[in-house]
Simulated assay, not measured.
Amino acid sequence: MTFKELSKGQINLIKALINQKNYRKRKGLFIIEGLRATQEAINSDYAVEFIVLSDDFVKKYGGKFPGFGNVKVYKITQNLFKTLSDTKTPQGIMAVVRMKKFEIANFYEGNFLVVALDGIKDPGNMGTIIRTADAAGASGILAGKGCVDVYNPKVIRSTMGSIFHLPVVEEIDLQRVLEELSIKGAKIVVTSLGAKKSYLDADYTSPVVIVFGSEAEGVSKEILNMPSEQVKIPLFGKAESLNVAVACGILLYEAARQRRALFPL
């Protein structure tokens, strides 16, 4: 394989994409790192602009690389790669990927199961929620204004490639969108520590949106005051609450269980 030379402009592009949210949004590009994530991107319908390999990565694979298709591939020194990488122990492969534009209307189709996020701030939680929603067969994710940037490198890394499997619409007016979905027949299920109803007693088999709130404050009062079904996960030990990504997994797999029982594959 013949490698191209990475220009100073491309090096600066990578640095800015890793560190600057506004730059990512303006350019419509984001960075992924790791072989698995790169392969997921190439096999998806996302556009991969180019791939960067370290010379150590090239030596490791001896010129026999997993299929990169017609994507441009650049090789740089291991030392330079480390200065660009956002990880402590980089694998030696990263890619620049173009964002996709998803419309909220896409969520109105069929018997959807949508995850709505209100003020999720932690990149690890956001990435894990996306990965969990993918695993549980959710239709997509709605991330309200105030959530962490979905294309933050730490979020992307935590998704383990699931960012390429389901639509994520971010920076939306979540209350307004939930009202729209409710008018179109969706059940709105809101997680709340103050709820009296267990999540096990809710019905998730019809079109449903499950709302999860911020790590510190939970779902906002504005959304809690909307017509909805409020549920909680019972706590049997001394912990005051569950991590939001864990809570998401519990509810989504209950929803998946009910749906598989009613609509087996």
Results as ranks from 00 to 15, higher is better:
T2C: 07
S7I: 09
Q10Y: 03
N12F: 08
N22W: 07
Y23I: 14
K27F: 12
I31F: 05
G34P: 01
L35C: 00
Q39E: 14
D45Q: 11
Y46A: 00
A47G: 00
F50L: 06
L53H: 11
K59D: 04
K60Y: 04
F65R: 10
V71Y: 06
K72H: 03
V73D: 01
V73F: 04
I76C: 02
N79P: 00
L84P: 06
L84F: 11
D86L: 05
K88E: 06
M94F: 09
V96M: 12
V96I: 15
K100S: 02
K100F: 07
F102K: 04
F102E: 05
E103C: 07
A105R: 07
L113D: 02
V115W: 01
V115I: 13
D122Q: 13
M126D: 05
G127A: 10
G127Y: 10
I130R: 02
A136P: 02
S139T: 15
G140A: 09
K145Q: 10
C147S: 14
K154L: 06
M160V: 06
S162N: 04
H165Q: 10
V168C: 11
I172E: 04
I172N: 08
I172D: 05
R176K: 12
E180I: 09
S182F: 12
T191K: 02
G194I: 11
K196L: 15
S198H: 13
L200K: 14
D203A: 00
D203G: 00
V211D: 02
G213D: 03
G213V: 06
L224K: 14
N225L: 09
P227Y: 13
K232T: 10
F236M: 13
C248W: 03
G249F: 01
L252S: 01
E254W: 13
A256W: 06
A256L: 09
R257N: 07
P264H: 03
